[in-house]
Protein backbone atom coordinates (compact mmCIF):
# COMPACT_ATOMS: atom_id res chain seq x y z
CA UNK A 1 0.00 0.00 0.00
CA UNK A 2 1.32 3.39 -0.92
CA UNK A 3 2.35 5.56 1.97
CA UNK A 4 0.13 8.51 1.14
CA UNK A 5 -2.90 6.23 0.80
CA UNK A 6 -2.07 4.57 4.10
CA UNK A 7 -1.70 8.00 5.72
CA UNK A 8 -5.09 9.01 4.35
CA UNK A 9 -6.69 5.86 5.69
CA UNK A 10 -5.07 6.44 9.08
CA UNK A 11 -6.35 10.02 9.13
CA UNK A 12 -9.85 8.83 8.29
CA UNK A 13 -9.60 6.21 11.01
CA UNK A 14 -8.67 8.96 13.44
CA UNK A 15 -11.90 10.70 12.38
CA UNK A 16 -13.76 7.49 13.13
CA UNK A 17 -14.80 6.70 9.58
CA UNK A 18 -16.02 3.15 9.45
CA UNK A 19 -15.03 2.56 5.88
CA UNK A 20 -11.41 3.49 6.57
CA UNK A 21 -11.38 1.25 9.62
CA UNK A 22 -12.59 -1.62 7.52
CA UNK A 23 -9.97 -1.02 4.86
CA UNK A 24 -7.24 -0.90 7.45
CA UNK A 25 -8.47 -4.14 8.92
CA UNK A 26 -8.64 -5.82 5.54
CA UNK A 27 -5.13 -4.69 4.76
CA UNK A 28 -3.46 -5.82 7.95
CA UNK A 29 -5.68 -8.41 9.60
CA UNK A 30 -3.90 -11.42 8.11
CA UNK A 31 -0.46 -10.24 9.14
CA UNK A 32 -1.61 -9.35 12.59
CA UNK A 33 -3.27 -12.71 12.98
CA UNK A 34 0.11 -14.21 12.03
CA UNK A 35 1.61 -12.27 14.93
CA UNK A 36 -1.05 -13.20 17.45
CA UNK A 37 -0.90 -16.88 16.43
CA UNK A 38 2.67 -17.08 17.69
CA UNK A 39 1.57 -15.91 21.12
CA UNK A 40 -1.49 -18.13 21.35
CA UNK A 41 -2.01 -21.78 21.84
CA UNK A 42 -4.59 -22.04 19.04
CA UNK A 43 -6.43 -20.14 16.32
CA UNK A 44 -9.44 -19.24 18.49
CA UNK A 45 -7.25 -17.58 21.09
CA UNK A 46 -5.28 -15.83 18.35
CA UNK A 47 -8.46 -14.43 16.76
CA UNK A 48 -9.63 -13.26 20.14
CA UNK A 49 -6.34 -11.43 20.58
CA UNK A 50 -6.64 -10.05 17.05
CA UNK A 51 -10.11 -8.63 17.79
CA UNK A 52 -9.05 -7.00 21.03
CA UNK A 53 -5.87 -5.74 19.43
CA UNK A 54 -7.67 -4.08 16.52
CA UNK A 55 -10.12 -2.40 18.86
CA UNK A 56 -7.12 -0.98 20.72
CA UNK A 57 -5.56 0.06 17.44
CA UNK A 58 -8.68 2.01 16.40
CA UNK A 59 -9.15 3.51 19.82
CA UNK A 60 -5.54 4.64 20.04
CA UNK A 61 -4.77 5.39 16.43
CA UNK A 62 -4.74 9.11 17.12
CA UNK A 63 -1.61 8.55 19.18
CA UNK A 64 0.25 7.33 16.09
CA UNK A 65 2.67 10.10 15.15
CA UNK A 66 3.13 9.15 11.47
CA UNK A 67 6.75 8.38 12.27
CA UNK A 68 8.25 4.97 11.73
CA UNK A 69 6.48 1.91 10.46
CA UNK A 70 2.74 1.88 11.02
CA UNK A 71 2.77 -1.87 10.66
CA UNK A 72 5.40 -2.06 13.39
CA UNK A 73 3.20 0.12 15.58
CA UNK A 74 0.24 -2.19 15.02
CA UNK A 75 2.34 -5.28 15.55
CA UNK A 76 3.47 -3.93 18.91
CA UNK A 77 -0.12 -3.36 19.98
CA UNK A 78 -1.05 -6.90 19.01
CA UNK A 79 1.91 -8.27 20.98
CA UNK A 80 1.03 -6.10 23.97
CA UNK A 81 -2.56 -7.30 23.78
CA UNK A 82 -1.38 -10.90 23.81
CA UNK A 83 0.87 -10.19 26.79
CA UNK A 84 -1.93 -8.42 28.60
CA UNK A 85 -4.27 -11.36 28.14
CA UNK A 86 -1.50 -13.62 29.27
CA UNK A 87 -0.97 -11.61 32.44
CA UNK A 88 -4.68 -11.44 33.15
CA UNK A 89 -4.93 -15.19 32.88
CA UNK A 90 -2.16 -15.36 35.47
CA UNK A 91 -0.32 -17.71 33.27
CA UNK A 92 3.01 -16.26 34.15
CA UNK A 93 4.65 -18.19 36.91
CA UNK A 94 7.54 -16.26 38.28
CA UNK A 95 10.07 -18.99 38.71
CA UNK A 96 13.68 -18.24 38.25
CA UNK A 97 15.19 -20.97 36.22
CA UNK A 98 18.77 -21.22 35.20
CA UNK A 99 19.09 -24.17 33.00
CA UNK A 100 22.11 -25.34 31.17
CA UNK A 101 21.20 -26.91 27.90
CA UNK A 102 23.39 -29.69 26.61
CA UNK A 103 24.99 -29.23 23.29
CA UNK A 104 23.63 -31.80 20.90
CA UNK A 105 26.00 -30.90 18.17
CA UNK A 106 25.99 -28.46 15.35
CA UNK A 107 23.14 -29.01 12.99
CA UNK A 108 22.00 -26.63 10.32
CA UNK A 109 18.32 -26.54 11.17
CA UNK A 110 17.62 -23.59 8.98
CA UNK A 111 18.04 -25.67 5.90
CA UNK A 112 15.47 -28.24 6.96
CA UNK A 113 12.27 -28.48 5.04
CA UNK A 114 9.54 -28.12 7.61
CA UNK A 115 6.23 -26.54 6.70
CA UNK A 116 5.01 -23.36 8.38
CA UNK A 117 2.00 -24.95 9.98
CA UNK A 118 4.21 -27.61 11.59
CA UNK A 119 6.59 -24.95 12.90
CA UNK A 120 3.67 -22.90 14.22
CA UNK A 121 2.18 -25.91 15.88
CA UNK A 122 5.48 -26.60 17.59
CA UNK A 123 5.61 -23.08 18.97
CA UNK A 124 1.97 -23.15 20.04
CA UNK A 125 2.52 -26.38 21.88
CA UNK A 126 5.21 -24.84 24.01
CA UNK A 127 4.27 -24.10 27.60
CA UNK A 128 2.84 -20.60 27.71
CA UNK A 129 5.74 -18.77 29.29
CA UNK A 130 8.32 -20.45 27.02
CA UNK A 131 6.23 -19.63 24.00
CA UNK A 132 5.93 -15.99 25.01
CA UNK A 133 9.64 -15.55 25.61
CA UNK A 134 10.61 -17.46 22.48
CA UNK A 135 8.24 -15.44 20.30
CA UNK A 136 9.27 -12.14 21.82
CA UNK A 137 12.99 -12.84 21.50
CA UNK A 138 13.30 -14.87 18.32
CA UNK A 139 10.35 -13.73 16.22
CA UNK A 140 9.80 -10.13 17.31
CA UNK A 141 13.30 -9.20 18.32
CA UNK A 142 12.69 -8.09 21.90
CA UNK A 143 15.88 -8.02 24.02
CA UNK A 144 15.90 -9.89 27.30
CA UNK A 145 15.70 -6.79 29.46
CA UNK A 146 12.55 -5.70 27.65
CA UNK A 147 11.06 -9.18 27.85
CA UNK A 148 11.80 -9.20 31.56
CA UNK A 149 9.97 -5.90 31.89
CA UNK A 150 6.86 -6.75 29.89
CA UNK A 151 6.51 -10.18 31.44
CA UNK A 152 7.41 -9.05 34.91
CA UNK A 153 10.19 -11.58 35.27
CA UNK A 154 13.91 -11.30 35.77
CA UNK A 155 16.35 -11.17 32.89
CA UNK A 156 17.81 -14.48 34.08
CA UNK A 157 14.39 -16.11 33.97
CA UNK A 158 13.84 -14.73 30.51
CA UNK A 159 17.11 -16.25 29.31
CA UNK A 160 16.35 -19.50 31.06
CA UNK A 161 12.86 -19.70 29.57
CA UNK A 162 14.26 -19.03 26.15
CA UNK A 163 16.82 -21.79 26.55
CA UNK A 164 14.18 -24.19 27.79
CA UNK A 165 11.88 -23.28 24.92
CA UNK A 166 14.63 -23.77 22.40
CA UNK A 167 15.49 -27.15 23.86
CA UNK A 168 11.91 -28.30 23.64
CA UNK A 169 11.61 -27.06 20.09
CA UNK A 170 14.86 -28.74 19.15
CA UNK A 171 13.54 -31.98 20.54
CA UNK A 172 10.31 -31.53 18.62
CA UNK A 173 12.17 -30.82 15.40
CA UNK A 174 14.36 -33.86 15.88
CA UNK A 175 11.32 -36.02 16.61
CA UNK A 176 9.55 -34.65 13.58
CA UNK A 177 12.56 -35.29 11.35
CA UNK A 178 13.02 -38.83 12.62
CA UNK A 179 9.36 -39.63 12.04
CA UNK A 180 9.59 -38.09 8.60
CA UNK A 181 12.71 -40.11 7.83
CA UNK A 182 11.05 -43.31 9.00
CA UNK A 183 8.06 -42.62 6.81
CA UNK A 184 10.30 -42.13 3.83
CA UNK A 185 12.04 -45.39 4.54
CA UNK A 186 8.73 -47.19 4.78
CA UNK A 187 7.73 -45.74 1.44
Amino acid sequence: MENHLLDQIIKDCIKGKSKAQEFLYVEFASKMLGVSLRYSKDLAEAEDTLQDGFIKIFQNIKSYQFKGSFEGWMRRIIVNTALEKFRKAKKIQVVDEFLEIEDDGDENYSELDISLDVLLKMVQELPDRYRMVFSLYVLDGYPHNEIAEVMNISVGTSKSNLARGRAILKQKVNDYLSVKENNLRVC
Binding site: R38, N108, L116, K170
Partner: peptide, 19 residues
Protein backbone atom coordinates in the same frame (compact mmCIF):
# COMPACT_ATOMS: atom_id res chain seq x y z
CA UNK B 1 23.11 -24.26 17.01
CA UNK B 2 20.80 -21.77 18.67
CA UNK B 3 21.08 -19.42 15.74
CA UNK B 4 20.11 -22.22 13.45
CA UNK B 5 17.13 -23.05 15.58
CA UNK B 6 16.05 -19.42 15.74
CA UNK B 7 16.40 -18.87 12.03
CA UNK B 8 14.43 -22.04 11.31
CA UNK B 9 11.42 -20.63 13.13
CA UNK B 10 12.00 -16.95 12.43
CA UNK B 11 12.18 -17.34 8.67
CA UNK B 12 8.98 -19.24 8.59
CA UNK B 13 6.93 -17.53 11.23
CA UNK B 14 8.10 -13.92 11.21
CA UNK B 15 5.94 -13.03 8.25
CA UNK B 16 3.20 -15.47 8.85
CA UNK B 17 -0.06 -14.29 7.37
CA UNK B 18 -3.35 -16.01 8.00
CA UNK B 19 -6.81 -14.93 6.92
Amino acid sequence: DNKHMDSLFAEGLKNLSVS
